[in-house]
Design a protein around this nucleic acid. Structure first.
Lengths: 152, 152
DNA sequence: GCGACAAATGAACCTCGGTTAATTACGGCG
DNA sequence: CGCCGTAATTAACCGAGGTTCATTTGTCGC
């Protein structure tokens, strides 16, 4: 949960997680969806021990493996291959966030919707319109409007 | 430059860089400002060898040290302390991007302006309104309106 | 002090997405 | 089959920010 001093890294074995923020006004925005094979942990919480800025919830029955980041980080101090695996993970994470920043800064909601349907149709099909909208950064109503605009 | 297969990491010794995208329609959006002590490199370009998605330009006379990422990555394969330094850098990078994602998803332009003036006033004072607006994700006119709104 | 150019502001109009509220599918389930 | 709760759609209105263009304010060189 948002606010926790959680410090675990989670490996998603099966199912689907969503990572989301709750804003002061109660609105929910979705950071990302984590399907089978994904790894998730809060950089903010892990790096500085700050309270985590987002929450995780399962959208489907989900099996995860939790590993304290501390264990990982400590082991990486002495194990070179683990350290490099961690570098690989962090690089991919950085790349994903870099792309998302680009999308949020430069694309309209409509563009982001089309991109989502193109790049991750499998996940798009597994979630509700409301979640899809919250991921794109708009309301379900606005998403419905966009779908109508595109269909004709 | 955007589109390059650049693969350097840059250390900013002095001055100020801006990292920005040029969109298809010619608009410019600013990813980040890099002041003294910053490190910058494109995750996308570094990880997969994809063309870089943004450009770098100096806003002030700037001195940088460029290091091919490949050299860094290769050295990290055998040098545990370097690997851990890299892990530290990537973690901080991920954390910054995580925060930016949050801001772009959850805050209004006005909120983002106030946050910028609070969190990085030093940089805000060194750049033009146009660049400040491009960083926040709005036009200079909209920024001017926001400033007026806030001043009364 | 003055001209020239860029930066910043301002005004008028438009569009997209938010807000509120009503309406229409779409399942389970008795 | 009909009932009920949830998800999705639609409509009407509003406001923030974009667009275009004009005006003002700085700033620099002379």
């Amino acid at each position: 949960m948002q606010g926790d001093h959680a410090s675990n890294v989670y490996f998603v074995k099966s199912g689907l997680l969503k990572a989301y923020y709750i804003r002061a006004d109660g609105k929910e925005h979705i950071k990302s969806f984590l399907a089978e094979g994904s790894i998730i942990g809060s950089m903010v919480a892990l790096v500085d021990g700050d309270p985590c800025t987002f929450s995780l919830v399962a959208s489907e029955a989900t099996l995860v493996v939790a590993l304290p980041y501390e264990v990982l980080a400590n082991a990486a101090q002495t194990d070179i291959s683990l350290a490099n695996a961690l570098i690989g993970f962090l690089s991919v994470y950085g790349k994903r966030k870099e792309q998302r920043e680009y999308q949020l800064l430069s694309l309209s909601a409509e563009d982001r919707y089309e991109l989502m349907m193109r790049d991750m149709p499998e996940i798009a099909g597994r979630i509700s319109q409301a979640d899809l909208a919250a991921y794109i950064g708009i309301t379900p109503q606005a998403l419905s409007r966009i779908k109508r605009r595109l269909s004709r």
